[in-house]
Design a protein around this nucleic acid. Structure first.
Length: 225
DNA sequence: GAGATTTGACCGTC
DNA sequence: GACGGTCAAATCTC
């Protein structure tokens, strides 16, 4: 099943639960994965029973860097939390897309365009690793929103939003749940987000923000050639 | 007592 | 048969 993955940096020693992304998750399993040092945790939306929300995620600590959590989202939120249309309340959620991310960027970040410089080092993998081009310590915490890249003008025009990685280019998205929540001091920081299967984008869009029934451009050849 | 977590068992796929 | 994903009973926490 195609899915979306994120790499989230947490404080050393913090548990995988440190990856609080704004949704309520219930752990339903844990497995030791072959070749992996750390077990993989399986989570589903708390509202699965009450609202039939089918969103799930898998959280696994990186072998290379235990402070990195690799979070794979599967399915999308159909619960009231994930499907909220109110942009004001939606901003309190994560990883839902902010409507106008540049408006929530603190001045300190808007004035640091250099932090938006990323390069993809392994585009051939489904979970490519991104490296900041600079060694600015502040960039390691990835409090970055590439405002010119996260949303396209096309989506803005239609009042629906998609990150640039939904385009045909193997781009990348960096956004922060805690950042969007205004919690700039959170220990949980997304350092990378990638998409494992561009062909099925939308079906497994994890953020629960798009109204697939009425707004998502299924007939747009850009996404479904 | 309700809801969340743990963990062994079960199932599907390769 | 190995492995990954899910189930469900037992246990824990508030």
């Amino acid at each position: 099943m195609p899915r979306w993955t994120q790499k989230v940096q947490v404080a050393p020693g913090a548990g995988v639960e440190a990856h609080a992304d704004g949704y309520s998750w219930r752990k339903y399993g844990q497995k030791d994965i072959l070749g992996a040092t750390y077990p993989r945790g399986y989570y589903r939306c708390t509202h699965r029973r009450s609202q039939g929300c089918l969103a799930t995620k898998q959280v696994q600590r990186s072998d290379e860097d235990p402070t990195i959590l690799e979070v794979a989202y599967k399915g999308m939120h159909t619960c009231s939390l994930g499907a909220k249309k109110d942009p004001k309340t939606a901003m309190d959620q994560e990883p839902n897309i902010a409507e106008k991310p540049q408006q929530i960027l603190p001045q300190s970040h808007q004035s640091q365009p250099e932090l938006l410089d990323f390069q993809t080092t392994d585009l051939d993998t489904k979970n490519e690793t991104l490296q900041p081009l600079n060694n600015n310590p502040s960039s390691s915490s990835s409090r970055i929103i590439p405002e010119n890249d996260v949303f396209s003008a096309e989506m803005m025009d239609t009042n629906i939003y998609y990150p640039s990685f939904m385009s045909s280019e193997p781009n990348y998205l960096t956004f922060l749940p805690s950042f969007m929540n205004g919690d700039y001091g959170s220990s949980s920081n997304i350092v990378h987000t990638s998409q494992s299967n561009a062909q099925t984008v939308g079906i497994d869009y994890p953020f629960g923000q798009l109204d697939l029934d009425s707004n998502f451009p299924f007939d747009n050849p850009r996404y479904f050639p």
